[in-house]
Design a binder for these strands. Structure first.
Length: 344
DNA sequence: TTGTGTGCCCGCCAGG
DNA sequence: ATCCTGGCGGGCACAC
């Protein structure tokens, strides 16, 4: 599924993949020649920030290269890994960060890298890419007939090289179950946070985001590009109203109310809102409400009905409906799944 | 489940 | 001329 309504996991995925119950989730990152230095830093940083209540890490991230030797990054310096590709054999997740694409890049990947990725996929491991790392997954054939994304700048090239992949270059990331791809640089952060949330719930993910000082709420459906023609005068933005809305998430927030808070007409407000966030006001609001409801489900013992009201869904039915379309599980099932993480 | 009303989204366009 | 605003209305999604 392409992420339009953001998260696309079924209940089984949550139940099965919640690694809190077993040994630490091991992530192997494959650094290839000309790896994008930024991308290489993201998974250790973000996954490393995912901790339980006692500070214990949920993930272990190790870096490897095809031959176990150093590789040069896109920034020119070299990286010396501790492992070769054998590290991927025992990994629960394999990540391919972006690589700098030369003009003469032919779209292929080294056979041993392809073999490692295919093996990981075949044994049910999770396989992720950041930015142009999607070119490597595609070269291994993993993305054929699957939805995926990559950096928008390389979308045409990608389509040309891999016509069988259902590329959506307009989203931050795509969650296709055990195959996850993300757009350039910053979107890798969003994808890592998304995965943490999938595994351990919003609270852990939000704590990790806070620890990294990145915004926790961007989801896959958000546009890679947010049209922002020119920096505007401060008082003509919807940002303060968004902040205000989050504080009053339980209230009845109609377009009229929100526009009035911004001192704009309804028409101008909706237009600005879309320009600035990439989504319509109600979609954004629904996401905030889902977020809040998830948090309450995880951290409190309030009834589903009480949570529905506090999150701004009028009724429990409405909450159930929205939660189901967002993540495919019912409120109580969601709560049960993450009760364990809380205890740990 | 289907039905009905309400609010939203956004293209369109006139006016500043 | 060019840009921004905000009212209108058809189509549509969602709430009840």
């Amino acid at each position: 599924l392409v992420i339009d309504q953001p998260v696309t996991i079924g209940p089984t995925a949550i139940m099965r993949k919640n690694p809190a119950m077993s040994r630490r989730h091991r992530i192997a990152m494959i650094a290839l020649d000309k790896v994008v230095a930024f991308d290489l830093g993201v998974p250790p940083q973000v996954f490393g920030a995912a901790r339980d209540g006692t500070g214990r890490r949920f993930y272990e991230v190790i870096t490897c290269t095809p031959d176990g030797g150093p590789v040069r990054t896109s920034a020119g310096f070299q990286v010396v890994p501790d492992h070769g590709l054998e590290a991927t054999v025992t990994a629960d997740t394999v990540i391919v960060p972006g690589i700098h694409l030369d003009a003469d890049f032919d779209g292929t990947a080294a056979p041993e890298v392809v073999a490692a990725l295919v093996a990981a996929r075949d044994r049910g491991a999770r396989v992720m890419s950041i930015c142009t790392g999607a070119f490597v997954l595609a070269a291994a054939g993993l993305l054929d007939d699957h939805p995926a994304t990559t950096h928008w700048w390389h979308a045409e090239r990608f389509r040309h090289l891999h016509p069988k992949v259902k590329l959506d270059p307009d989203v931050l990331f795509v969650d296709d179950g055990e195959l996850l791809t993300s757009a350039g640089v910053g979107a890798g952060v969003d994808l890592c946070l998304h995965v943490i949330r999938r595994d351990h719930g919003s609270e852990v993910a939000n704590r990790a985001a806070r620890r990294c000082v990145v915004p926790p709420w961007r989801d896959g459906g958000q546009a890679q590009y947010i049209e922002r023609p020119l920096p505007r005068v401060a008082d003509t933005t919807t940002a303060p109203t968004r902040a205000w809305a989050v504080q009053h998430i339980g209230d009845r927030l109609t377009l009229e109310v929100l526009a009035a808070h911004s001192s704009m007409s309804v028409r101008t407000f909706t237009r600005r809102f879309r320009e600035e966030t990439g989504v319509s006001p109600t979609r954004w609001l629904h996401r905030q409400r889902i977020d809040h409801a998830r948090q309450l489900l995880e951290t409190t013992d309030l009834t589903v009905d009480q949570i529905a009201r506090r999150a701004g869904f009028g009724t429990a039915t409405s909450l159930r409906q929205h939660l189901h379309t967002a993540i495919g599980v019912a409120p109580t099932a969601y709560r049960r799944t993450f009760a364990r993480s809380r205890a740990g």
